[in-house]
Amino acid sequence: MHAHPAAAKPCATCGDLTGRGYPSCPDCARAVDRPWESAWAALPDPDPEQVADAPSGDYPWTCVDWALRQLRCAGCGGELAAGAPDCVGCAAADAARWELATATAHERALRTAVAALRAPTWHRRAVASTWRLLLPFVVAGSVPSRAALCEVRTQVVAGRYEELATLDTLPLELPLLPWRRSVV
């Protein structure tokens, strides 16, 4: 899809690892959104409404996601598929987005992280925080395993977000939580 940096690096604008400031930091947003922007730019005549309303499979998932970002929901006025958590229109648009599969596990991780961070009120705080912690590594080409996602989320729930945010490599290695240590 795109060339990835060799490792997660600090963002020149926000100072955190690139991607962690998504979507509010402009440089993090540019780094994360690169696949969507390039796919959208490759369309001959991009029209967000046409792309969002097209039958599933007519456009790549990146273009459908990007079209949704550019449209406002008639029901709640928010970004379509990321507006108010109780908005039926946004929920329908979000569900339709996932009808299109990604080609790789990396694309799926990137898409899932972005969806969670663009609509954080739709997810438990621990889920959004987990993706915020892991997004810099996904931007650098890593794909966290399901076990790694679960472990990071467990650490976040245990109140270790700030501690995890200081780590700059995957896997995020911390001592086990006291209740998860095996007793011999």
Rank of each mutant, 00 (worst) to 15 (best):
A41V: 11
P10G: 11
E79N: 11
A92E: 11
H4E: 07
D27T: 15
P175T: 10
L134A: 09
S142L: 05
R180Y: 12
E49G: 05
S56L: 09
G159L: 00
Q155S: 14
R69H: 12
V139Q: 07
H2C: 09
P35H: 06
V184M: 15
A126S: 15
E99R: 12
R30C: 11
G78D: 06
A42W: 11
L117C: 00
A74V: 09
V138E: 02
V114I: 14
R111H: 14
A7R: 02
Q70E: 07
V139L: 12
L134G: 08
E163L: 15
S142P: 09
A41I: 13
C90P: 03
A3G: 14
C90H: 03
P171T: 09
S38R: 15
S56G: 08
E162G: 12
Y22A: 05
V51I: 11
C73Y: 11
V88C: 11
S56D: 03
W61I: 03
A12G: 14
A140H: 06
V127P: 11
F137I: 00
E151P: 10
T130S: 08
P44L: 14
P178L: 03
L43Y: 01
C90T: 03
R20D: 02
L164N: 04
P171K: 06
V88N: 14
A41W: 12
A128D: 07
E107R: 05
A42H: 12
S24N: 14
A3C: 09
A31H: 03
A119F: 08
H4W: 09
D27P: 10
R146P: 10
A12K: 08
E79H: 07
A92N: 09
T13Q: 12
G77M: 10
G141C: 01
R34V: 13
